[in-house]
Design a protein around this nucleic acid. Structure first.
Length: 481
RNA sequence: GGCCCCAUCGUCUAGCGGUUAGGACAUCGGCCUCUCACGCCGGUAACGCGAGUUCGAUUCUCGCUGGGGUCACCA
């Protein structure tokens, strides 16, 4: 027990509900979640909806859904509640108001009556005179007589000298001169707190022990530290994460790739693969590339997090997803079947027999790179007749070949065993007896059985299809030509 | 521009003073084969530059260059 503070780490992710869950946000949340899980700590979700203009309840829903899909559960927050609520900042205005009054009365903050228009004008004028100069709030209202009834914002009275420093869990010591700080706004004219104020107060009141967020927040940290000090509170620890950038090194936006977690689900990627890919941005564990969710929890640690930004790579992402789909230990059969179902439904294949589905999946596992692809690969098993790829037919199946398939069907009909080994032996024997190579029979048969030129191994297909349907499709061959 | 941060193959990374600088993706050959895949074997490919420190720097220090972030009544 150190200093009597809570020992269990309490981590949080605080999205602002102004859209979907961004893939970068998911990554930030993941690091927090992993640490909370691995330490037996608590992961809280807090909705930062102080900007009424941009926040929406639909967006909260979308973000929560994304968390559920990713399998990142939260211990406190919307829907589950908890002892530190409310978890929507819009419902915490009274808390902020009271604390801000204290700040003002102690001289750490003051009311400012300069209007946005005045400030914008001053900013503009300065820019005219000296395009390179930076506008700093001149402190006009610092010592002005207080008139609480007039419209105003509340500004923090930043120290003019000294430095603010902290030890980042990832970047190490970071020190910023206070002179670089201006009297930033704490509360807007409409009474709503701004990010730095609300986040600071909530992190403290919610007993957050470690704030892990993307590197673009490093510059906010000194301001928040100043607020902690003014409020007389001990700050939590901070960990900043390197950024995940576009392939070109720009800020990741939808111009470059899917940025909404929802998109990845819709494109048919496994959730665990999304997690696997994004965690590898800035974190590694030796040479290992593929991790299950549980492994991640077990292996994650801050000393394996590095500092340099990374660029998103679709190809690598696709490969990670593919690995998850290929390995049965990562995606068990039942899970695969369940997840591919919606994509089959999209193709109008609503009720594939569960037995057949389970039997068919092993054959397409090493072929399908997404659940969406898997549904396409599976299609011919469940569609009667299978969709015919005309090009494949033109290339591989002619009248002569089709006639042979009918003969083959009769031979096969008389056989006992209907398993891949026996079927292959039978077809081999049958082909050789006619002076044909196996592929001269197999390729036309593939077209008849699957409607396409590419499929899982032919004899596996026949087993999954079953004797009756296989024979029927072979006998139907002449009608395709 | 001020402040802050970063720097190993094209990309994600391993490396924590002495290595033929390793892995993965991508890419290029080849093998396997009833198709497509999977798999396997092999190739190309990196320490940004310059000073120090040291017997010895990818590794430590400084400078430069390059890149990124941030400077709102957004979060």
């Amino acid at each position: 027990m150190v200093l009597g503070r809570a020992m269990k780490p309490r981590l949080r992710f605080a999205p602002s509900p102004s859209g979907y869950l961004h893939i970068g946000g998911a990554r930030t949340a993941l690091f927090n979640w992993l640490w909370a899980k691995s330490q037996g700590g608590v992961f809280v979700l807090r909705v930062e909806d102080t900007d009424q203009e941009r926040s929406s309840i639909e967006s909260v829903r979308a973000i929560l859904d994304a968390f559920v899909w990713l399998g990142m559960d939260w211990d406190e927050g919307p829907e589950v509640g908890g002892p530190h609520g409310p978890y929507f900042q819009s419902e915490r205005k009274a808390i902020y108001r009271e604390l801000v009054e204290g700040l003002i009365s102690k001289g750490h903050a003051y009311r400012c009556y300069c209007t946005k228009e005045e400030l914008d004008r001053a900013r503009e004028e300065l820019k005219q005179r000296n395009p390179k100069a930076q506008f700093v709030y001149p402190g006009t209202c610092r010592n002005r007589t207080d008139q609480p009834d007039l419209p105003h914002v509340v500004r923090f009275k930043s120290p003019r000298d000294g430095v603010t420093e902290f030890v980042d869990k990832v970047f190490g010591p970071i020190s910023t001169p206070n002179a670089a700080q201006q009297d930033f706004v704490l509360v807007r004219t409409d009474g709503y707190p701004l990010y730095n104020l609300a986040a600071t107060i909530d992190d403290h009141l919610m007993d957050i022990t470690l704030v892990a967020r993307a590197r673009d927040h490093i510059g906010n940290t000194p301001q928040q530290l100043l607020i902690y000090r003014a409020l007389g509170w001990d700050p939590p620890e901070f960990a900043h994460l390197p950024m995940m950038l576009s392939p070109k090194g720009e800020k990741l936006s939808k111009r470059h790739t899917s940025v909404s977690v929802q998109d990845y689900r819709d494109r048919g990627y496994p959730a665990a693969a999304v997690l696997n890919y994004i965690v590898r941005f800035g974190w590694s564990s030796g040479d290992q590339e593929i991790f299950s969710r549980d492994e991640l929890v077990r292996l994650f640690s801050w000393d394996r997090v590095n500092k340099s930004d990374g660029k998103f790579d679709d190809k690598k992402f696709a490969d990670v997803a593919f690995e998850h789909l290929k390995r049965a230990e990562l995606t068990p059969l039942e899970e695969y079947a369940k997840n591919v179902q919606p994509f089959l439904a999209e193709r109008g294949l609503t009720a594939p027999g569960p037995r057949t589905l389970a039997a068919a999946i092993p054959g397409i596992r090493e072929r399908a790179r997404t659940y969406r692809d898997a549904a396409a690969d599976l299609d011919f098993y469940f569609r009667e007749p299978p969709e015919l790829d005309v090009k494949a037919r033109d290339k591989l199946l002619n009248a002569e070949g089709a006639a042979r398939l009918v003969e083959l069907a009769e031979t096969l009909a008389g056989r006992e065993g209907w398993n891949a080994t026996d079927l292959e032996a039978a077809v081999r024997e049958w082909s050789e007896a006619r002076g044909l190579a196996v592929k001269d029979v197999a390729q036309p048969a593939r077209v008849a059985l699957t409607g396409r030129s590419a499929s899982p191994p032919l004899f596996e297909v026949m087993v999954v299809l079953g004797k009756e349907r296989s024979l029927a499709r072979l006998r139907r061959a002449p009608s395709l030509v």
